[in-house]
Design a protein around this nucleic acid. Structure first.
Lengths: 199, 199
DNA sequence: GGCATACAGTTAGGCAGCTAACGATAATTG
DNA sequence: CAATTATCGTTAGCTGCCTAACTGTATGCC
């Protein structure tokens, strides 16, 4: 459970009362926001518990899955480009895929290599780069681990009907899109931003 | 952004194809699960960005809010008990409220005290305990910070209608409840568990 | 009353994020 | 071709999370 948060969310009446003191507080928005953080944390915790039992962390698992894509490319991953590379290979590509810095990826690869899950190899062409590859041990681990992981996920989401899942995905996508717009408003105004810099 | 995760979620067709290899993979469940983690992370990131600009971390903010409840108790917090204490006071209570270990809380209070936001005082009755209290500086900080924080939340959730918010909270609550049941199934079977141990 | 147990807070050590800076190498550009 | 610029991986040092073990204090049980 990585993100610490209030164990018990404030009740709606409490939010209503706080709104009297803080006019900027939108009770229904705050309620939805807090429930989102809590549910995300809960879901994360369920999967992390699964991973812990197998002695692997969320971060390491993420790296393994990115490399797994390379070993087992799906046709859907390569819609048009025929000879395109299937997945990330270098620490920099892995860092981009996992949304962490290169420095963090160095540490993750360090421990994964120490535990025998990946191997570093120097790139023969560009001598700045390294190639990271899964070992057979990692391949075997994933084949044993993933089914249970998928069952856990299915059990967690199993409380929702198919229609509810679609609705949930739709609403969450709206929020993610809005979050992206709030963090970097340049996404929509990519044509204007450079001008602003030029001026 | 605390929980690292795939930057780009796999597409639905890709999940469908993977399901051929892994029968335990429920594509719609996996899709909903991944979107939940991503949206939770996105929402978390938006608020964390807000906090960072004010030089305070999510964990510290959580502690301040727990202590704030004590300074400004709401009537809704005290439904029946008249003279009951309003909020957490000791490091152990704060740790329970923030869902972290006591050791972690020690570190958080250390830095908060160093920065002048809280003060430790020994408990006059039970000499094992400490009392943690907000300083006027923290009170002023929160009064200045919270309105912006609430506006950010309202803007993020603003993409949803009131009806959508209600739906979202309902679905997320279902998932959180299921997660709790999966992590500690003893909640419902507290009478059976001890027997199992006795045998 | 004396001793085992339980509990509060801290400390020590590990992992996983981050930023900033570095050396080595490649690419660009005058 | 030479020099600047950019990129790759790594290192060092920070924060914040964890577990395990420790000290001091209260409590419970003969």
């Amino acid at each position: 459970m990585p993100l610490l948060l209030l164990k018990d969310l404030p009740r709606y009446e409490c939010l209503l009362e706080s709104a009297k003191e803080f006019p900027d507080l939108d009770p229904s928005a705050a309620e939805a926001y807090l429930h989102l953080l809590r549910a995300g944390d809960d879901a994360f915790g369920v999967s992390e518990r699964n991973l812990d039992e197998h002695g692997i962390s969320q971060g390491r698992f993420c790296v393994l899955m990115l490399l797994w894509r390379r070993v087992h490319p799906r046709a859907a991953d390569l819609p048009g480009a025929a000879g395109a590379e299937a997945g990330p290979r270098t620490p920099a590509e892995l860092a981009a895929g996992a949304n962490v810095t290169r420095a963090t990826m160095t540490g993750l690869i360090d421990t994964l290599e120490r535990d025998g899950f990946v191997k570093r190899e120097p790139d023969p062409v560009d001598r700045r780069m390294m190639s990271v590859r899964l070992t057979p041990k990692a391949d075997q681990f994933l084949r044993e681990f993933l089914p249970g992981h998928f069952r856990t996920t299915a059990k967690l989401i199993g409380v929702l009907t198919e229609a509810e899942r679609k609705t949930l995905v739709r609403l969450l996508t709206k929020i993610s899109t809005q979050a992206a717009a709030m963090v970097s408003p340049s996404t929509a105004s990519a044509l204007i931003e450079p001008v602003a810099h030029a001026v």
